[in-house]
Amino acid sequence: MSEATNYRTAESVSPKHPDKLCDQISDAILDAHLAEDPDARVAVDVAGGHGTVFVTGEVTSRATVDVDAIVQRIAGDVEIINRLAPQSTEIAQGVDIGGAGDQGIMIGYATSETPELLPLEVVLARRLNQELYEHWSYDGKTQVTLDGEYIVAVVASFQHASHDELQNVVEVWLDEQTIAPVADDVALHINPAGDWRVGGFDADAGLTGRKLAVDNYGPRIPIGGGAFSGKDPSKVDRSAAYIARKIAVDYLKRRDAHEVFVRLAYAIGYDQPLEATVIVDGIQEQASGYDLTPQGIIDALQLKRPIYEQTARYGHFGQGFDWD
């Protein structure tokens, strides 16, 4: 491998990774509530592992949801501990008048370097993961390192995949993908800890919201810090992150730009953003032309629909969602 000049790396995890299982359970419970009650207040966190799934959080909803059935559909035959409670009245009083459900900073990003308008290393790691998941629909991870535009290293670890079979699929994918050249001395790390058969909740514990960089824009791009899954759109750490992505995409296309960052900030119980900054190819300005109140965001993106479980599989951006 040559001396580093412009290295960047991103990873992706499969839908059967323990953290992603928890994300999907959280969002499936959210979807089930929104399907019956679009005004449901939902904040569901899940911890799972070694035969047990613990569901906790706050739900205020008119819907009747079979939480156990949702968990079993996604996680299989596990013991389920359900500790859901109603939303705090002190939080609700600020949301009821149209205010944000929490304080926080939300980041939006878009770049012209890929069709998905995401960083190249993120797209490559995700596409490879999706390809491998087609062959082995189990727990797995991928990682791609670039030096400039060249792929110089690939890591692939997948449950139930033998080293030789996995390497063959990775090599074919590298030959067939067309968005990045491959270095002559590309390093392949295929099941580098050895072939493995025990994965998912049988091998490791998972938590909702633990794959923040995977869910966002990869490790090069700052994130606000809030997780997405399990939260209804009154929680601006989800809904405002989605509108921030839309603003970034809109400005990128409108200005024919290379890179756009968006920063939004909110206070709990207050409906207007404290900051709405757009940085277009390094030039900062105020975002304009958007209703950035929580209700305005919800209306613009139609966020009271049961659309969230699919976002919890491979990331929340660059997959053709309404905010992309």
Rank of each mutant, 00 (worst) to 15 (best):
V260H: 03
E121N: 05
R73C: 02
G94F: 00
T145A: 03
S239T: 05
V123P: 00
F317W: 11
S88V: 02
I223N: 07
G200F: 01
T56N: 10
T208N: 14
G320M: 02
L252D: 08
Y266M: 11
D281I: 09
V95N: 04
K246V: 10
E116H: 05
D175P: 00
W196L: 10
V78L: 07
T293Q: 04
A287E: 11
V71Q: 01
L117F: 09
P273M: 09
L264C: 10
F228A: 06
D202I: 06
S12D: 12
Y266R: 04
T145P: 10
A100S: 11
I107H: 14
D299V: 06
G140C: 02
G57I: 06
G218V: 13
G108R: 13
Q302L: 09
A110M: 08
G320E: 08
K211R: 14
A156K: 01
P222E: 13
G225C: 09
S61Q: 01
L34P: 00
V169A: 09
I283Y: 15
T145D: 03
Q177E: 10
L174Q: 02
I279S: 10
G76P: 05
G148R: 07
D96F: 05
K235D: 07
Q24N: 02
A240Y: 00
P181W: 15
F228D: 06
S61E: 02
E285S: 12
D232H: 09
E3H: 09
Q272G: 08
G206I: 08
F261E: 12
I74T: 01
A100I: 11
G209Q: 07
A153Q: 10
T111I: 04
Q87P: 00
Q159S: 11
L301M: 07
